[in-house]
Design a protein around this nucleic acid. Structure first.
Lengths: 235, 235, 235, 235
DNA sequence: GATGAATGAGGATTCATTCAT
DNA sequence: CATGAATGAATCCTCATTCAT
């Protein structure tokens, strides 16, 4: 508790309860919405339940977000697209080798996004895109394109510095994304993927480490080998 | 005996046109349902549109299938789970090497399932499982477990015959499934995956060939290498 | 009753109750909607009450009309705009003098429209047009323009035949419409117009007769008068 | 004492700016409410937008007016019913002929009411009266009755002074009101009245002048005419 | 069997009104 | 006094399911 609070009780420094709630509301609603959307999907989530989980009434939700779709967009901005500038900045200032950079990138991704509720949004978009074209377009623009750009920059850096063999970016980007996407889905779709009669436990960090190493093996510049793998040397 | 068997087996005597129509009804409904479910998802598909696409009335749909959920189960049986006995039989009679077997397996999978409408069901289950627990349990039992079993048998065959290094099956099964799942999703979720500002065109057959070769490289029994990749030698 | 009906009792000519209702429903709903819209206005009428008055459930209403707005349009078509072809035909075949024609026109209007529930739609549009632009446009196109055209044709006929003095159509059409509009409003807005402390009883037929005569007096071709009324001799 | 009096009377000493603001609030709210009600109707206007237009918060609106209905009543008092005492006073002191008086009356009406926002209230009442019975009763008592009384007094004066033929007041009052009501509606309901494919431009002052002259012609005491118009000599 | 009319629970959104600050 | 956050009843519309014909 701050000293000022103890001394100044007339005009308390901590905002009034009313005010405090007001500031907190959008965040609480976004958190509740993320939870519910990830749990049930966008279409199957009701505005009322989002509100209930945030501890407010239906009406309050629409006080802060004009519609369910806007709420979803806000969730995406808050949890994903709003972070690309930070990630791009990290890219710009990264000084190690590009293989290290890629390892770092995927590790960070897992820790900050993949391992969080927010990663459920990826799975969610897979299915809802068809039925909510506007959300799909938004997601394209705010998430897919920036993500592709970021990965492409990393790969290009490796190529430019002579660390990677020349890459067909078309496959390169997806080769990096594939294990990330798969891991998200695996973690979030036990019911639809896992054989739950066995206590399957994939350790995500291990899985990613293996995948990234495989990718780097494929990208590594090396002396010509006598046994090229079926004509797809660079992925 | 599977439902699809019942529904598809033709009567010995050529039935009258009217009669044939009646017998064909359920099949037409299943085909229409598959189409629509894959296109829009389970929850977003209406019973009425399924019926319309099958050229019958809404009432008729419920004459053959007790509910929308039962219709979905029938679609899964018709298109996926009903085929495992055939696939298991192929496994039993396969005589080549296990690497060839795995290549054949993934090639067949792509041709018969992955490249068909039915593969949309996979994606669909990812998202709807949470909201339809009974469907999820059904899918677990009728699809996931048999698929896991089949792959496990293949890998085990390779290990038993000394073609593969000993495998932690926990990862082994998923290593095989991962590219299949990813490819399905990629093909069916352009909007949510592709950066459509580039004309991305992944060729599925190429993608799978690369992936299976990578897997086989990882599984191949070989002379000890001086640079083990971070302690995950067998994947 | 047709012979075939007497002979063929297997397939009864009178439709089954189910069928009979189906045919009758739209009409019943339109009648209920007209009633309620006229009584409360468009915005203040609820779909549910329209349905209740028609003796069906909410859902049934939307089985026949895609939305509340479409229901309104159907009401307008049924009761007003659908009748213009008939009225134009009467105009074409009318053989008397144009003054008689105008008298006949207003008399018929009162009997067929003005004195019916449908006339409430006029009043209704006055207020709802602002808030339902699409309905306003529809009404413009389907009612206002045809009505103006019809009146203009009548006045023009009189002028062409030398029965009326030349008219500024801009005022002419409104001069004819004014008493009709006023009468509708008067009859339908007792609460907002009448001083109900006196038992005001305007007899519509008398009112209209006076008005039409006044109009005809104004339009009549006559010998030049020494006292023109303020420079607006022709209305 | 009327509310408007209370609200508008200035305090003798010039109040501090803050103070002045407070006093002005209700007036600003009434002005905003009049604007909005006339623009969109009573039911379609939201309390929030009234407040916004007045530059205050929603809460403040309900501080001054107990409900939306009370706000409406205050608007009517401020703009219409509060003025009847002034108009009655003008009547009492008018010294010209009754025809001149009627001309003056309608001219004044147009300038002070008909041509102002306040005239929109008339149109508004036509439609909303049914749905807000209490407002209807209020309007009856505060506007309709005083207006009828005023017109009746004018006509009666003409009859008493031998300027007008004896009149059935039942029609007389409405004959005067009709063009006023019609003009208001015409001016405020272009969408629902005008055929906008022609650039209709009725000039209100001209229209009224013609109408009042027509009325006076009908009321004028004159030598017996050989061609009585169908038995309604006095309107 | 086949139909399709009818139902009504369910969900997004609006807005007058209240009340804690 | 003034604020504006919060409420929840009310409304349009959808769709799985039923059932009379």
């Amino acid at each position: 508790m701050s000293l000022s609070k103890l001394l100044c009780s007339a005009k308390p420094a901590t905002p009034a309860k009313h005010e405090r709630r007001k500031k907190a509301r959008p965040g609480e609603l976004l958190a509740a919405a993320l939870d519910l959307f990830v749990e049930k999907g966008f279409a199957a989530s009701t505005a009322e339940e989002v509100a209930r989980r945030a501890g407010v009434s239906k009406g309050t939700l629409f006080l802060y977000f004009a519609s369910k779709e806007e709420l979803f967009k806000a969730v995406v901005r808050e949890n994903i697209s709003g972070r690309f500038s930070e990630w791009n900045a990290e890219f710009d200032s990264f000084e190690g080798s590009t293989p290290d950079m890629l390892r770092y990138c995927m590790k960070m991704w897992w820790e900050r996004l993949g391992n969080s509720k927010a990663s459920g949004i990826t799975k969610l978009m897979l299915s809802e895109a068809e039925n909510f074209p506007e959300l799909a377009a938004f997601y394209q623009h705010e998430v897919i394109q920036p993500a592709h750009n970021l990965i492409r920059r990393i790969l290009q850096r490796g190529v430019d510095r002579g660390e990677f063999v020349p890459i067909d970016m078309k496959y390169g980007v997806y080769t990096v994304l594939a294990p990330m996407l798969f891991l998200q889905i695996l973690m979030r779709s036990k019911a639809a993927c896992f054989d739950d009669s066995e206590a399957s436990q994939v350790v995500p960090e291990e899985f990613l480490a293996v995948q990234v190493q495989t990718i780097l093996d494929g990208l590594r510049v090396r002396p010509p080998s006598p046994t090229p793998t079926q004509g797809h040397p660079s992925l």
